[in-house]
Computed example of a mutant assay.
Amino acid sequence: MTPETDPAPPHDAEDTPEDLARHAAKMAKKKAARDKIMAGKSGEKGLVIVHTGAGKGKSSAGFGMILRCIAHEMPCAVVQFIKGAWDTGERRLLTEHFGALCQFHAMGEGFTWETQDRERDVAAARAGWEKAKELIRDPAIRMVLLDEINIALRYEYLDLAEVLAFLRDEKPEMTHVVLTGRNAAPELIEAADLVTEMTLVKHPFRAGIKGQPGVEF
């Protein structure tokens, strides 16, 4: 076996005093380097956050942030652009248990291939964007999740330049805005402070397994 393929030593293997001393010195060095990095990062600001990519988890990550805001008693809001017709677990949870802290607005009528009516889709997206602007402008709301807005932008139901200008010029300084959905526009990625791309490695849908409660919605 090569060193790269040798199995790791058993978890309960006894360490010598020299091993423990080396480990302690290594961790102390790492902590000092980390503390030095963190010492220079004291600023805070409201972030524009983008979750995109072909992999699952974009909306899930956004809702995870919403739950963190709720745990910190930070007022927040959700605007859903595409999944509005779905009875999702996150919608039930937030509206039934956390309505005092999190506003939830489902503006879409389902996925675009279900309506087959571009005018209706555009109208629903515009209504969602108007609500989103109202929520983002409110400085008391600390985070606004724009779920699947990237889909509305991709199909040109909304004007990308208008969205970018609003985020640049009208978003309060300390408000976080999270935009999810596949195929985020390069201009949006450039303007964002934090961008995560979910990579598809494997998905049960390809094996004939439908979306299931608790996993997909």
Rank of each mutant, 00 (worst) to 15 (best):
T5R: 10
P9N: 01
M74E: 06
R22H: 15
K133T: 02
K56Q: 11
R168L: 08
K131C: 06
G208H: 12
P3S: 11
A125P: 05
E90W: 00
M65C: 08
M74K: 07
V144N: 03
E114S: 14
I151A: 03
G128V: 07
C76Q: 00
D138W: 06
D117F: 04
K41F: 10
Q103F: 02
A127C: 07
P7H: 14
K56C: 03
T88H: 11
I141C: 04
R22C: 14
P10Q: 11
A192W: 01
G214H: 10
V215L: 13
K202S: 05
E90K: 04
R137W: 04
E114G: 09
E148P: 05
K31R: 14
V215S: 10
A21M: 12
V201K: 07
D15P: 08
A24S: 12
R120H: 04
T112P: 10
G64N: 09
E216F: 02
R137N: 08
T52G: 11
I66P: 04
L146M: 07
K36V: 13
F166R: 15
M1Q: 12
W113K: 11
K26M: 08
K36P: 04
R118I: 15
R68W: 07
W129M: 09
T16A: 13
L179H: 05
E156G: 00
P204S: 01
R154S: 14
T112N: 13
D19L: 05
K26E: 13
P75S: 05
I37E: 15
E96F: 10
V50T: 07
K26F: 06
A85R: 12
A152R: 06
T16E: 09
M143L: 00
P213A: 01
D147C: 08
A161R: 02
D12V: 10
M1E: 10
K41Y: 05
I149T: 04
G55M: 02
G208N: 01
L20N: 14
R118L: 07
V48M: 11
A100H: 15
E90S: 03
N150D: 06
D138F: 02
M74W: 02
T180Y: 07
A185S: 13
A184V: 06
D159S: 05
A140V: 15
D35M: 14
K171A: 03
R120L: 08
E18C: 01
R182W: 13
K41R: 15
P186V: 05
E18T: 02
T112Y: 13
P75K: 00
I136N: 12
I82P: 09
I209D: 13
T115A: 03
K26Q: 13
E4Y: 09
L179A: 00
L200N: 10
L93K: 15
G128H: 06
P7C: 11
V122A: 01
E156K: 08
